[in-house]
């Protein structure tokens, strides 16, 4: 059976959806992702949907479910790279993905997650933050 690969990147899990999801594949992804969160104790989940051309209410519900379930296990979910046409369609459909964080791309999503889970200090030590420390008041 087909499976969407889940990558572990530091404290986060990264999923890149490259194919049109049929229902069973989406449900499998939900299961796999949630068990991965519990196994690894991941603090965040990044779902890259930049290659997805259709998000209908079923797929929207899966994304919402993943976010709510992860939150219970203390992990935040960020959906990144939604296409403009998909965003317009979802809004028209009445689906605004409440409770799911969004970001323009994986990099910005990663920044957002670091901010959300409050391990920004670790990040600054690694000198990855754009602004130098002396800028902070």
């Amino acid at each position: 059976m087909d499976r969407i690969p889940i990558l572990k990147m530091g404290p986060f899990l990264l999923v890149t959806i490259q194919v049109d999801l049929y229902d069973r594949l989406a449900l499998t992804l939900e299961n796999d992702l949630i068990s991965m969160v519990s196994q690894t104790g991941a603090k965040g989940v990044l779902i890259d949907i930049s290659a997805v051309t259709i998000v209908d209410s079923f797929m929207g519900r899966i994304l919402g479910n993943i976010a709510s379930m992860s939150r219970i296990m203390d992990a935040e979910t960020v959906v990144v790279g939604m296409q403009p046409a998909v965003a317009i369609t979802l809004v028209e459909l009445g689906l605004t993905l409440q409770g799911v964080y969004t970001a323009l791309d994986v990099e910005k999503g990663m920044d957002l997650l670091y901010n959300k889970i409050g391990i920004i200090d670790v990040l600054e030590e690694d000198d990855q933050e754009e602004e130098p420390d002396d800028c902070n008041d």
Partner: peptide, 12 residues
Amino acid sequence: IKTVSATRLMGA
């Protein structure tokens, strides 16, 4: 409101 919601879905 729709425009704002769509912008947010994109992550902005």
